[in-house]
């Protein structure tokens, strides 16, 4: 490849912030695009993976789909999936959103499945013995107890999707990746500015879902040891 490489000077980081200020319009529109692509992908992933994972966990079946299948999807190289998607879906946002859904939903699926499937069978037995119907067991016992782990999965997936959306720049998917792959136009300071914006978005996504996770964790569970861990971004993070 023939890249015009910028040299790095000590004040390039300062320049990056100047770049943001000077190109506020560009930064704003790319950040918005980035959020739209990520938001669409997260929403679709949630709509597919949560009902499927919760349902499979509820009936205690399909561990092959929810765990083995999921692990295979998680092993896929992001760029390769985006490239294949481009070939079949053509250039643009659809392809990127599709790839992000494929790459991001397995974590949600696995966590939702494990969360519901792993609930102490004694609790379910007690609930059945008291005369709860399957739907009542799902809504009153399984879901409340599974929510913290389900949200942990959503949180990991959200951070992953926001960061991976950057690769969309390579295939014309828009977003902050457009700045990061265009060093020729924006120079290293632009690349750094784009990266800082991606990092900020990832952090924001992490924080939002961490707060939600905290909010949905029943107080009785928080009193049990180790059922809720403090926010530590490095723990679940996946490099993209």
């Amino acid at each position: 490849m023939t890249l015009a490489y910028d040299s790095f000077r000590p004040y390039t980081f300062v320049d990056a912030f100047k770049f943001m200020a000077d190109n506020a319009g560009l930064m704003w529109s790319k950040t918005t695009e980035h959020l739209i692509v990520s938001g669409e992908a997260i929403s679709i992933a949630l709509l597919i993976a949560i009902p499927l994972g919760v349902w499979l966990g509820h009936i205690h079946r399909g561990s092959f789909v929810a765990i083995t299948g999921s692990n295979i999807l998680r092993a896929l190289p992001s760029l390769a999936v985006i490239a294949i998607g481009l070939g079949y879906l053509g250039i643009g946002r659809t392809n990127v959103v599709f790839a992000l859904v494929v790459l991001g939903s397995p974590v949600i699926l696995t966590n939702a499945y494990v969360a519901v499937d792993g609930i102490d069978p004694d609790l379910i037995e007690a609930a059945r013995g008291m005369g709860m119907r399957p739907l009542e067991i799902l809504l009153k016992v399984e879901l409340p107890l599974a929510l913290p782990l389900i949200f942990a999965g959503i949180r990991t997936a959200a951070v992953f999707i926001v960061a991976t959306a950057t690769l969309g720049g390579v295939v014309g998917g828009g977003g902050l990746g457009d700045i990061i792959v265009n060093q020729a136009s924006y120079f290293l300071r632009g690349v750094i500015a784009g990266s800082i914006a991606v990092a900020a978005l990832s952090f924001a996504a992490d924080f939002v879902f961490w707060s939600l996770q905290r909010a949905v964790t029943p107080r009785g569970l928080r009193l049990q040891a180790r059922s809720f861990e403090p926010m530590s971004p490095a723990d679940d993070a996946i490099a993209v």
């Binding site: 040299s7 790095f8 390579v170 990746g177 290293l188 750094i192 990832s202 952090f203 971004p233 490095a234």
Partner: peptide
Amino acid sequence: FSVLAAFLYTIPSLALFQLLVPF
């Protein structure tokens, strides 16, 4: 080490490779 980890994970690889090039 964890602080370094947290920091590195927030940088997209696409950018990290470019940032290493000058060095």
